[in-house]
Structures are given as C-alpha cells and as structure tokens.
Design a protein around this nucleic acid. Structure first.
Lengths: 330, 330
DNA sequence: TTGAAAGCGGTACCAG
DNA sequence: CTGGTACCGCTTTCAA
C-alpha cells in the first residue's frame, strides 16, 4: 500500500496524490475527493521514512533526559511536547539513565533521524558529541550543562541564587548543622548544584555541611540520608539536590522514628508537582517549567520570530511548605 | 555527508561502505579499516529514514500510554525500554493524555513509522483503529483493553480478584461505608476497575459504596476526594482506582484535618514505586510490571521463541501498608 | 571481495 | 490543474 497504488486506484498520478495529501498546489475538487476516497478505501498511511527522506526536513525535535523517573524531567518533557505539538512538531524522547554510552547512542539516534532540533536535559555532554551535533547543523538547547557555542543555546538555572535563598532561610530558622544529599550525576559527584551549596554555605563561618550521595531516585535519596544521619546525627536540616531525592530522604527520616520538621527539616529543589502532594508538603525551589519548555521550543523551532537566544538565566523562587521548620534544640 | 561521500573518500563503492557499517558479507580487513577511517573523519552518521526505507524492516517498537504523568505508565514504559534495548530494539513512546484524537494521531504516527510492534497501554481503542493496525500487519499488545483478534495479544489484569482481595481486607477491618475514587478514562467513567469494585462489593449486603471521579492525576484524586467526603462524611475507607489518585486523596484528607488511617483508610492500585515512599505508605495491589513488560516485548519482538500468546491474565497481590487500618467507631 | 544498479516510498520541479 | 521524472540516502541482488 503505497502512493502508487492509491494513484492507480484514483486514476491519477502519484504527484497528484501527494499534492492532495500535503495540501499544496492546486487540485480540482472532484479529483481531490476521488483521491481521498481511494486513500480511505485503501487505508493508506504514508510511510514517514520515505516522506522524511524525500522532503529533507523533519518536523520533529528530540529531547534527551538523563532520568525519566525523576518527575522533573517528566514535567519538562510534557511541557515541551505540548508546546511542540501546538506548532506542528512531534517530540522524540530518549532516556539515558545517566549512562554515557546511552547518551552517545541516543544522540546518534537523533542525528540519524535528522531531527530539526535537540534539547539535552542531561548532566554531562562530551565535547565530541557537541562537535558532532554542530557538524550536522542541528540546533541544540542545553539545560544545566555549561557549553556555549554557535548553534547552541543554554538555559541555566542560577543555582547560587536558588540555593542561597534556601540556605539563608534555613539559617534564619537556626540550622547550623546541615546535610546535603546529592546524586551521582556521572563523572564524579561534583555537580553544579552541589558546588552552589558549598559555595553559599561557606559564607557562614558557624555552619557545617555534611554530604552524602547516591543514585537519583527515591531509593537513592533514602540510602544517602541513612548514610548521612548515621554518621552525622547532629544534622538538623537536609538539603536535597532535587525533590526526588527529598521524597526518599523523608521516608528514611520517618523510618528512623524522627519527625519532620520538628527533628529534621528537609528541602528539595525543582518544585515538582509531587512536592505539594507528599506529606509533609516539601519546601522546595521553583523552576518555571512552562517557561523553560517555551524557551526550548522557541529556540529549536524556526518560526521567523525569536530564535537562538544564546543564553538564558532562570532565577528560581523559594517555596516554603511544611517540611521545614525551626532547628531543634541540642 | 552521505554514503557516497564516505565511499569516495575511502575509494570504494557505497555497497562496500554499507557492508562494513552493517557488518554483513565479506570485506577485506584493509578495506574495512579504510572505510572506518573515512567514517570517522567525516563524522558520518547514517540517515535512519533512508535505512528504514531501503531495508524495509524497522527494529523499533511503539508504546502508547494514556497518561505519562501517572507513575504506573512510566514504570511500564521504562521496563519495556530496558527489555527492548536488550534485544536491539528501540522504543518510541507516545502519550495521548486520554484524548481520542491524540490516540488516532499517535497510532497513525506509529503506522507511518512502520514500527515492528505496538503496545497500547490505553483505556480505549476504536475498532477502526484496530482494523487499521491489523491491515498493516502490525503485531499489537493491549493492556487493559478488551479486544481479541488475530495479530493481537492481550494482557489482562484480573481486577475482580484484585479488588476482591482489597475489599475483603477492608471489610475485615470493619469498614462498611466505602468510597470509590475513579477517573474519567474517556467514554464515561465506567471503567473495568470501577465495575470490578461494584461487582465485588455487591456481595456484601451491609456495605454502601459512594463514588466520585475526576481526571487521572494527583490533583484529580484530591478533587474527587473532596467531593466524596463533603457529600458522604460517613465514609471510613476510600478505594482509589490507582495509586496516583490515592496520593491526591491522602493530601485532601489531611487538609481536612483527618488522620490516615485512624479516621479514613486509603488504598491505591498498581503499587507503583512511589507507594512505598509516600507517607503513610500506601496500601495497594501489586501489578508485576517487570513481568508485564516482558510479556509485551516477547509478543512484539520476533525471536523465534515464544510468540503471540493470545491472552494472559495477571492475578495481582494485595500489599498492605500503613494507609489502611481499623474502621473508626461511629 | 567489490562494484553497478535497481529499488524502497515519497516530494517537487518542469512541462504540458 | 495534472503527469512525468529526477532525486533523497541506503540496502541488496547480481555480476565481475
């Protein structure tokens, strides 16, 4: 069932069928209906590979995330999908599970598909991969990875500010023994977020920060917290690198028989949808996902208007909920 | 940058380059390395559209889910992805957001891509779409939708048994005034799960069930619960159609100043990963996701072995956690 | 072991 | 308004 069969049945040429299907050029009404009828009867569905090959362009954008189980990535993906669909583009998602090899595979896959643009919401990016994308003239937007080059836009969250707001807030509540729960975002645990916390905390001379890290998941957050609290029971507040880890942290704290926030305060980052539904509600830092998705789509989908803003900074807002409170007395 | 350029640079024909890249046929060692070198230098990445078109087959399977924000769908998707990758297939995901039109669009997209197989984890499926899939000889696996035909496998959860275990358990705890929180799974709120509950509950003459429904999300679960409890404050246990709605229900109950499970018990369904991390831990019914994904991949990916089991039933297990307890006294 | 060439299923330009 | 046809980039016989 291909164009030719449809053409034969409608007694026209393949060119005409193509015109009808793509709604381009002028086609007589009666011919059009004849073609439509044949399409209908044959249940003809164009082969998208052939279409892409012949057409050259791709009307689909790729989104690569490092961990789709983390609600934040999902939220972002979802927003991008909605936005892109509105502009007639479809979204192809790939998940790397924080694996370098998977990242390479996924990027090659996107290049192989000749996507119109690529959003990389991942925690690392080898220069050679960037080179490769650039070589294929694929517009790219990075979130959280720090590389600026031609054809590449960047969306950066001002972690310093975000973490700053968070730590100032905790400090004002009397917390002096802090814990930081991070995750192995590949290539060593030193992520931008962790750096930001450390940097911010160094402002206070009477504060101590103890850290622990595990994989980016509920279970990982739980394990890291267990490790942290067993070696540093004096900690009164735990700052988690993201909401996902924080959920796991809260579970562990309760299992230890401690109360939140009376005994230990917990904070997240990203302010995912779930943060307001868990119990207690999670104090977090809001990243405007809708806006992020919009920026991504704007710089990836050519529409004559705004395009390729080189770099965008996001200044995240603190959202206080019930998971944080006054530091407990010694 | 196409095959021809690589061929020219390596001073061979495109056929030879193709052989090297696909590791088929016999190629002399020196020729092979020459080709590889050219590929490397040119950063050549084959156009997958052309490859699929020429090759005919597709090595990718499609997964359509109705709501990717529901952790259950995500878990399933993730499992399928892992399994498929292991067999050299890639997974293409599409999300319908419970929209009929999106479902049609997504299926057409999958057909257009000529996927090797399709898994539909959705709540509805028009006969004409099934016809269409069948017409294109695409193997299909349905989860939760009840249609049996050639080329179509079915994975069905025995809701009657699952809900039966749940209700028997609640009954034994003294609950007589029950609430059921469902969601509009399109085409009217009468889903298979809801039917199962009603049917099971009708066994007890001294039990009353009140229902409410909203969209499938945390927020939806919350709204439905609000509606339910305001009109039926006598309810002592709320059975939610899935864990996602249950999380929302728990949030609403606490906001009303009620305790879980002392004042109201809550149960979910699916036993998603999150169920053990929320607070209190959610009593649920476990669906073996790993097994489901395995079945899906087995019947979609041809490997000579098992194939196209027509229908599979899953008998889900009750998982009791802290969100359920004895019914409160009047 | 290698090359030439015929498709795969469309699109789009050029005539008519 | 419609048809013929040259590609798009790759795979796969068939010969050499």
């Amino acid at each position: 069932m291909n164009l030719e069969e449809v053409a034969r049945r409608a007694k026209v040429s393949t060119a005409t069928v193509s015109r009808v299907l793509n709604q381009v050029g002028q086609v007589k009404g009666t011919t059009r209906t004849r073609v439509m009828k044949a399409v209908e009867e044959l249940k003809y569905r164009p082969n998208l590979h052939a279409r892409n090959l012949a057409g050259g362009k791709s009307r689909s954008i790729g989104v690569i995330v490092s961990n789709i189980e983390n609600p934040f990535f999902l939220d972002i993906y979802h927003e991008i999908e909605a936005n892109a669909r509105g502009q007639g583009y479809e979204v192809i998602m790939a998940n790397t599970d924080y694996s370098s090899e998977q990242l390479v595979t996924s990027i090659r896959l996107m290049i192989g598909r000749r996507v119109a643009g690529l959003a990389a919401i991942v925690s690392e990016m080898h220069p050679e991969l960037i080179e490769e994308l650039h070589h294929y003239q694929i517009p790219v937007v990075f979130y959280d990875v720090g590389t600026i080059r031609k054809n590449i836009s960047n969306i950066r969250v001002n972690y310093r500010r975000g973490m700053g707001k968070l730590t100032d807030y905790l400090y004002s509540l009397g917390h002096r023994q802090l814990g930081f729960v991070g995750h192995h975002g590949l290539l060593g645990p030193i992520t931008e977020r962790a750096n930001a916390v450390m940097e911010v905390m160094s402002r206070y001379s009477d504060v101590a920060v103890h850290t622990a890290a595990d994989v980016d998941s509920f279970a990982g957050g739980r394990r890291a917290t267990q490790e942290l609290l067993s070696s540093h029971p004096e900690v009164t507040a735990i700052i988690c690198v993201n909401d996902c880890m924080a959920i796991g942290a809260m579970r562990e704290i309760r299992d230890l028989g401690l109360r939140i926030p009376e005994d230990v305060s917990v904070t997240g980052f990203d302010n995912v949808n779930l943060a307001q539904f868990c119990y207690p509600g999670l104090t977090s830092v809001h990243i405007p996902r809708h806006q992020v998705a919009e920026m991504i789509c704007d710089s990836l989908i050519p529409d004559g208007k705004t395009q390729m803003k080189q770099e965008i900074f996001i200044d995240p807002e603190l959202v206080v909920r019930e998971s944080s409170g006054l530091a407990r007395k010694r």
